[in-house]
Design a protein around this nucleic acid. Structure first.
Lengths: 239, 239
DNA sequence: ACATATTGCGCAATGT
DNA sequence: GACATTGCGCAATATG
């Protein structure tokens, strides 16, 4: 099994299709196929309008589901979600760090570790030639609390390309937007609250200053009248 | 000028290439071209190995910059990042809302704007047939302010796979983390400030209540002593 | 033009 | 199981 880096460097062609998707089309197979690919066929294949001759029923090209055995394991792409992840790399670095709270991705361990499967480049997918400059991504998703995940064994995400997956993603995206709107709203309200409280504080302070002044004046007046009243005053106030 | 929705509805085919990308290839033009497209040509075009016969120098297919009239303007995909966006759709819906805070990608302006470069097939790509389960993503990136982008024509991101790109991404990721940490910190401080101000407010209110009570008592005492003092009081307070 | 800072958005893991 | 949170990256934009 080849090293990832070797595979990447050896790769001279563009890999653009997702091997994991049944809907992916093996371009190489298409190109190498002896079948004459005419324009109409191309339209049907590329645009996905038809897979076989509507009259004869003969498939334009026999498209096999991508074989797992030839899947590149170090690149993952989902055309359904239009998201790409170098997930193998990430997961590699991820699982590598056992004791760490927040895992880091050790590029070396990835490159030097043997391929995790029998995959080779003859897969039905195309990826862009990987440059020597890789972006190392961290493990995706929320970080577990210090005590670790509460439910370590949870149902996996449904496989990409399924209706279930898309449904889940759509719902989650809605939830995320909602949650962030809420957070943003809360933030604004909090700042607004600060403003209100500050204003209120100022007003209270002004009132307080005024009352204090009045009180002092009154007290001084009392002193002018006689010392006996303050005693009664304290007495009254203590009730 | 057509309404966005109309354009979308009229469209019977899937558009998978980004007309705005320099690397996009006009599939329709390719397919409709009378030139016979053989396998070798396809290899060269699709895999971007050659754009012309190495011997004769004759272009395999004269690829014009994508014609706006047939541009798939509502689909965007970038194979380098393996990121796909149905950005035209999003941008369409995006621009469709006129009164919205975030406006306004005018679909017409996109369609009518001249191609931004001398596209070639060097990076031409194919997309898989679109599956029925499609996640519609919005236009990526920050939304322009209501007035529109301040600097519409800005240097593009460096091409992916280059050291420059990775450097930029890494720095941006750092900046993003920093910015979010800052925002989070600010949020916490704001909430803390609310707490402090609330406490302070309560204390001020208590003081105020007490002083008011005292003042009322003193005034009532004054009334018991005689009515002449309040006059002096007002006189003094007015100074 | 360049660099950093912000921000909307999606993914996926985790929380509730 | 459903929905809510959250760390993270991308890319477009904003701000120096």
């Amino acid at each position: 099994s080849k090293k990832v880096s070797t595979i990447l460097q050896d790769s001279q062609v563009q890999f653009d299709l997702d091997p994991l998707l049944e809907n992916s089309v093996d371009i190489r197979q298409l190109l190498n196929n002896s079948t004459q690919v005419n324009d109409a066929t191309l339209v049907n294949i590329i645009l996905g309008e038809k897979t076989a001759d509507p009259v004869t029923g003969v498939p334009f090209i026999e498209l096999q589901p991508a074989q797992d055995s030839v899947l590149p394991t170090f690149k993952e792409f989902d055309f359904m979600t239009n998201q790409e992840q170098t997930s193998k790399i990430s997961e590699a670095g991820w699982s590598a760090s056992e004791g760490e709270e927040y895992s880091t991705c050790d590029i070396e361990s990835i490159v030097n570790s043997p391929s995790q499967s029998e995959h080779d480049v003859t897969s039905s997918t195309l990826t862009p030639p990987t440059s020597p400059f890789e972006i190392v991504r961290g493990r995706p998703g929320r970080k577990p609390s210090a005590a670790g995940p509460l439910r370590p064994n949870r149902k996996k995400q449904p496989p990409k390309g399924t209706e279930e997956y898309v449904d889940k993603r759509v719902r989650n995206n809605l939830a995320v937007r909602k949650s962030r709107d809420k957070a943003k709203k809360k933030q604004q309200e909090t700042e607004q609250r600060v403003h209100e409280l500050s204003t209120e504080n100022e007003n209270l302070q002004k009132k307080l200053d005024l009352l204090t002044k009045e009180l002092n004046v009154l007290k001084s007046l009392f002193i002018n009248v006689g010392a006996s009243l303050p005693t009664k005053f304290d007495e009254i106030m203590s009730r």
